[in-house]
Design a protein around this nucleic acid. Structure first.
Lengths: 328, 328
DNA sequence: CGAATGCATGTTTACGCAAACATTTCGGCG
DNA sequence: CGCCGAAATGTTTGCGTAAACATGCATTCG
């Protein structure tokens, strides 16, 4: 900055004023300063700025993996909305989903230049790490039940699962089977619980639960077993990728979807409309989740009031061709 | 820091020494300082640190979208490897893929606290923005032909496409049709060119090119047309998602894959093994791409020698069930 | 026994910027 | 013609940290 000032024949303060668009700099001077900046390739040092202002205009995002569609789409929405607000996003990966891994991420976080944190992760692991969360840093969590400690944003898992079950029962199926996500996942747990509750409420029998790990492959394995259950005419998979595996398993076993068995997924990933057959699924609004995360966390940064607890983003069922009335 | 020093009854410099693990602090003093840090919840201010060191230990990543599997997996690999090296990742979204959008991203970048930049984007757009790239900041680009100006890392698109074509010709198909990605994409262009070249080299006729936008839906639309081509017995799709659309289109048109028509994809996304039928595809090593990006860019940061030009990450064909000999 | 040595710790300074305050400049008006 | 006030510009200062240098103290050795 000093070089620019010298070159433009002005003081450093004037350079600062020009660089920040402050008023009170006459046109000709401004021109000179801008010219000098250009020539010298000057760009303000954000470290010094941050030091001065005590803010980084950056939000940290802690996540375990980007390989699930939900996480990466949520992240994308967060990045976009943060950018609109003039905030950048710094990623803090948790290499291994263990207690230590999470603790490590939070430790690194403490040294990081962020004004706030959004956690996209199974909160079961977060529990252990609570203590080490740097105090004074606003935190918003996605998919958790830690709403007594943090601000939580989540898709309305319960209502989504309920819609899936009702849709299938409404088509005339006697009951609905479920392929759940991994036990560590809150989302998986919620969807499974809501599935069970809805069946019980309707007075239907609750079939044994299958479990996958969100991957299509795990859905395939579950599907091979389900295909041998003669009573199984309707399956609700906890995500679209496992539903894809189910479709393949039923195909391999000679069962026709939806004539022999109906399948409902969860997420509405972009590809799900191109499955064979196109998948009936529960649409999740990842963009809205990301938007609310950013909004909530920035409210805290600005010391504005934040309604406490969990904010739920609604879902909606997208009927496609993988569901129909049960075989006669 | 001053508070900690006061509380521990030492100077600020000693606190600094403890906090950075420097030697020359006797045990008892260290204990006291650590205790004071704990009590006061002290954590070093990274802005001040960065100001002092002139480094942020952060790499900026410019990308347009996370919705393609390739981008999000590459990003994940970059994040992981950067973390291993003690670097954080800051995301810089390009809201709209226009010249101005890219310019905007680079402008913001100039103000951002990053030591280096990795660009994951169609370089066609990057061209226009070259001028505004802050000089002195190391840049590595993924998927580009700007290797005269930047360090470039890329999957070996040409060899991958060649493997796909050879595989199909080797099975006895007379020629291979191609569903390409969008024109703006270098990767799409390279795969298409390699497909054409390989056909010509083998002395086969080159069928008209179809074009999609990477989405399954666009693959479906292309597939509906291809299904009406009586000579079309083998299709190479430029990515797995479009291949998924092809599979559905052929299914809808009553064509059996692979008996009537063979399909090869590109990427080997995790789901592709669960398509119906499981997809023969060209495996891309996104992890390796990410690793090399980080390695290259950090070499530049450290002023170590970097071999210029493009570094290519090899691919390999993964044969599954979507390809076979052509119908008799 | 005094000086030299080495180690633990303290003091000064600069990193780049912008707020707060100080000074200069210039136009307008009595 | 000189003075006032507003606008333009300059100077000082501190943000939190760590390198460089300074000090003080204990131990050791001639």
């Amino acid at each position: 900055m000093a070089d620019v000032a010298r070159r433009a024949g002005v003081s450093a303060q004037t350079v600062s004023r020009v660089s920040n668009g402050h008023p009170g700099v006459v046109g000709s001077t401004r021109e000179q300063v801008l010219a000098a900046m250009q020539e010298l390739g000057y760009r303000p040092n954000s470290a010094a700025r941050a030091l001065k202002y005590g803010q980084f205009r950056t939000i940290g995002v802690i996540l375990f993996t980007l390989s699930t569609v939900g996480n990466s789409r949520t992240l994308e929405a967060i990045v976009d909305h943060a950018a609109e607000e003039g905030y950048a996003i710094t990623l803090i990966p948790v290499a291994v989903p263990t207690r230590d891994g999470v603790l490590g991420a939070f430790t690194r976080l403490g040294e990081l230049a962020v004004d706030a944190v959004i956690v996209i992760m199974e909160i079961h692991l977060l529990d252990a790490a609570t203590v080490s969360l740097p105090s004074g840093v606003p935190v918003v969590v996605v998919d958790s039940d830690a709403d007594d400690r943090y601000s939580v944003v989540d898709t309305d898992q319960v209502d989504g699962a309920r819609q899936a079950v009702r849709h299938l029962l409404g088509l005339g199926h006697r009951t609905v089977w479920h392929v759940a996500g991994p036990e560590e996942s809150f989302a998986a747990e919620r969807r499974a619980t809501a599935w069970r509750t809805e069946l019980e409420r309707a007075g239907r029998s609750v079939p044994p639960l299958s479990r996958g790990d969100w991957s299509a492959e795990s859905g395939y394995r579950a599907g091979l077993l389900l295909a041998d259950e003669p009573d199984c005419t309707a399956v609700f998979a906890a995500n679209d990728q496992m539903a894809l595996g189910l479709l393949r398993a039923f195909h391999d076993k000679g069962k026709v979807v939806p004539a022999d068995v109906s399948v409902v997924g969860f997420d509405d990933i972009p590809d799900s409309g191109s499955f064979v057959p196109p998948l009936t699924t529960v649409h999740q609004d990842f963009t809205e989740v990301g938007r609310r995360c950013v909004e909530r966390v920035l409210r805290q940064v600005r010391n504005e009031p934040v309604e406490p607890g969990t904010t739920l983003v609604p879902t909606r069922l997208v009927p496609r061709d993988s569901t129909s009335a049960p075989p006669a």
